[in-house]
């Protein structure tokens, strides 16, 4: 019973980090119809910035703030200077379908090499904002740590801010409308291209938070966020790719599921477990667990 509860809590904290990456992917997918594989690279770059600031100032939260800002700027820049040019050029022939995907891959490689050339490949370790040692109740120490709870709280705050932004503000409405129907949004007077760039910026900032949180558990290297990208993608697919709520639910389900495997089966099977979940969802419910007989678009 106790173990089950611990598993659930740790699963939530793991899943909440996946939720941020998965949200970032869904945000971009909805507005641009591209799975942005460079999201891992953008998050990594932002995290290196955040890491530098956090290490120098000894304040994790200042680092997080810089990671968000760096992520947002980079995200906006990628859309503005890169995706727009790409869509202008690669607009016909066999490349049409594959060009955006390939381009984000190229960007991932580019950011990775630039980060590698700048910071090298060494393992960097970030001072976590809270203890990684589990809470102790009298005699018993559980694996769930203050850092885990802080992770959950941080993600919850971000999710609430995002929910308010999307549901309560005109910018949020413009973002949703441009994602659902760019043409109608444009006819309503919305500058859809600009709105899309803002969406990329939000995704970039959210990715930066995910990177910082992962890095407070693990080392930072030019490759250390690849797995986050993969699990974020799996979570997004579980949620159906279209829905932000779905992305979060998918991530929590995945986080808890993988923690169950970790605690009851073994560390080594975690990846295979995640990959099997992906294949299962794709085979059985390719529109995600939120879908109700709606046909997938795009």
């Amino acid at each position: 019973m106790q173990k089950a509860l611990e598993t659930l809590l740790i699963g939530l904290s793991t899943g909440s980090i996946y939720a941020l990456m998965s949200l970032a992917l869904v945000l971009v997918w909805r507005s641009t119809r591209v799975i942005n594989f460079a999201q891992a690279g953008q998050a990594m770059f932002s995290t290196y910035i955040g890491f530098e600031i956090a290490t120098r100032s000894q304040i994790f939260w200042l680092g997080l703030l810089f990671a968000i800002v760096a992520g947002a700027l980079l995200g906006a820049g990628v859309d503005y200077f890169f995706m727009r040019v790409l869509f202008k050029h690669a607009n016909s022939g066999p490349a049409l379908v594959v060009a955006p995907v390939i381009a984000t891959l190229g960007l991932l490689g580019l950011i990775r090499s630039i980060v590698g050339l700048t910071w090298g490949g060494e393992f960097k370790s970030l001072t976590a904002p809270a203890s990684k040692n589990g809470f102790t109740f009298g005699e018993v120490t559980i694996p769930f740590s203050p850092l885990d709870s802080l992770t959950i709280i941080t993600v919850a705050v971000i999710l609430i801010i995002l929910a308010l932004l999307f549901q309560r503000t005109n910018l949020g409405l413009a973002l949703r409308a441009s994602a659902y129907s760019p043409e109608i949004a444009q006819l309503a007077g919305i500058r859809t291209a600009r709105t899309r760039t803002i969406g990329w910026a939000i995704a970039g900032g959210v990715g930066g938070v995910a990177g910082m949180l992962v890095t407070s558990y693990n080392f930072l290297t030019p490759y250390s966020l690849d797995l986050l990208l993969v699990f974020g993608f799996i979570a997004a697919v579980i949620g159906g790719l279209e829905s932000m709520v779905g992305a979060v639910i998918g991530a929590l389900v995945l986080g808890i599921g993988l923690t169950i495997i970790l605690n009851y089966v073994g560390t080594s099977l975690v990846f295979i477990g995640g990959f099997s979940v992906l294949l299962l969802v794709l085979l059985i419910k390719p529109d995600g667990i939120m879908a109700r007989g709606k046909v997938r678009r795009g």
């Binding site: 050029h89 490349a95 381009a103 960007l107 490689g109 580019l110 990775r112 090298g120 030019p222």
Partner: peptide, 26 residues
């Protein structure tokens, strides 16, 4: 430097990939 050896090939590959997908997509 070690960095150069490890990341320069990746840099060249990605730049080529990006340029070609934008300018010679087909």
């Amino acid at each position: 430097e070690d960095k150069l050896n490890s990341y320069l090939p990746g840099l060249i590959v990605s730049v080529l990939l990006i340029l070609s997908v934008i300018y010679t997509p087909n």
